[in-house]
């Protein structure tokens, strides 16, 4: 997609909303496949009937995220080169995305209603293998979204090991929410229960119990996310790098402070924690929406905190370039 013409390179955002949504959906989709795969592995393949729709939703998230990634490119058709060459993090991420979607979809096919099943139904080893591979690739995608940004040396606020940790915890939290929303909705019957071979605390397991467990797990994850988020931003606030420090001040005390404290910390993480503790409609309806919104807001805030180290005199130079001439310059573009 084309970008707005901006004469000041220091203020220019090269990655905008499609990348923010892509990073959110990548974390959400990858995390969903990972958590659902872990449930299958820990509780046996029967548990997959409860999480199957979430797996499909996870695949859809990755698919739509990939579409946004390609949509954001200057030359989308050249994207195929990614699979033919290169050893960049983006290439590994793209491969993991494709593999996670493939394995997740094959895994989902095994949980379709019996009348929809085809010849593959008896080959359960494929389902088990795909479950493992789906979880591994999902984990890879989830971690990659943070590593991808953290690898940018030029970006003071991104180039830190804390960012992949934050994105991973956030991805796990949003994935847990998605699983809780879609657990047992389809294709399993309403009275479906799983006889658990490996669970010590319950002989039987159903969607309701899974949702309770997921709410408990997410209440821990949101608190972990608050801690990691505060450590990350406060670490940047105390950093020696002036660019990182300026962005952290903007988050903590500046223009973005209402978004950070009110939107992300309070509405997105602390209130969901109390909703989970109180249970009922708050845990089922309010907390999931707030956690997902906080995940998206986090990606937007991080993506737009992309200022690079400033070279002395650069800002003065770009500030002195003509402004407001975009329309004139656009008309002037011929013969280029």
């Amino acid at each position: 997609m084309s970008h707005k013409m901006d004469s000041n390179k220091l203020e220019k955002h090269y990655w905008i909303w499609p990348i923010a949504i892509y990073l959110f959906l990548g974390g959400l989709g990858g995390g969903t496949l990972f958590v659902a795969g872990m449930f299958d592995i820990l509780y046996g393949p029967e548990a997959g009937y409860i999480t199957a729709l979430a797996v499909l939703a996870g695949v859809a998230c990755l698919g739509f995220g990939s579409f946004l990634l390609v949509f954001e490119l200057g030359q989308p058709l050249v994207f195929l080169r990614v699979f033919l060459s290169g050893t960049a993090i983006l290439k590994y991420g793209a491969c993991l995305l494709i593999l996670a979607m493939g394995f997740g979809f094959v895994n989902f096919l095994y949980y379709l209603p019996a009348e929809w099943q085809l010849f593959y139904y008896s080959w359960t080893w494929i389902r088990d293998l795909c479950c493992w591979l789906m979880a591994i690739c999902g984990l890879g995608v989830m971690v990659y979204t943070g590593v991808f940004l953290a690898s940018m040396k030029a970006k003071a606020f991104w180039n830190t090991p804390a960012l992949p940790v934050l994105f991973t915890v956030s991805a796990l939290s949003t994935a847990t929410v998605l699983l809780a929303i879609l657990a047992g909705v389809w294709p399993m019957p309403a009275d479906f229960t799983v006889q658990l071979a490996g669970a010590a605390h319950a002989a039987e397991f159903d969607a309701h119990k899974l949702v309770e467990e997921l709410h408990f797990i997410d209440s821990i994850l949101v608190i972990a996310e608050v801690i990691v988020l505060l450590v990350y931003v406060l670490m940047m606030r105390a950093a020696g790098n002036i660019t990182a420090r300026t962005i952290a001040i903007k988050w903590l005390q500046g223009a973005w402070a209402p978004l950070f404290w009110g939107g992300m910390i309070c509405l997105g993480l602390v209130i969901p924690f109390f909703c989970y503790r109180l249970g009922g409609a708050g845990a089922e309806f309010i907390a999931p929406v707030l956690v997902l919104a906080a995940g998206l807001l986090l990606r937007f805030m991080v993506v737009f905190s992309d200022q690079r180290h400033e070279i002395a005199g650069e800002r003065r130079f770009y500030n002195r370039l003509p402004k407001g001439d975009e329309a004139f310059l656009h008309e002037w573009k011929a013969p280029y």
């Binding site: 013409m5 090269y14 490119l73 080169r81 690079r308 573009k333």
Partner: peptide, 27 residues
């Protein structure tokens, strides 16, 4: 080049850029 702008974001010197005046889908 598919203009993913990973290199633009990774360059600490701001030495790379994409033009807003390029034809759509050909930047």
């Amino acid at each position: 080049c598919m203009a993913c702008k990973a290199c633009v974001n990774s360059c600490p010197y701001g030495a790379r850029d994409v033009s807003a005046l390029d034809a759509p889908l050909h930047s």
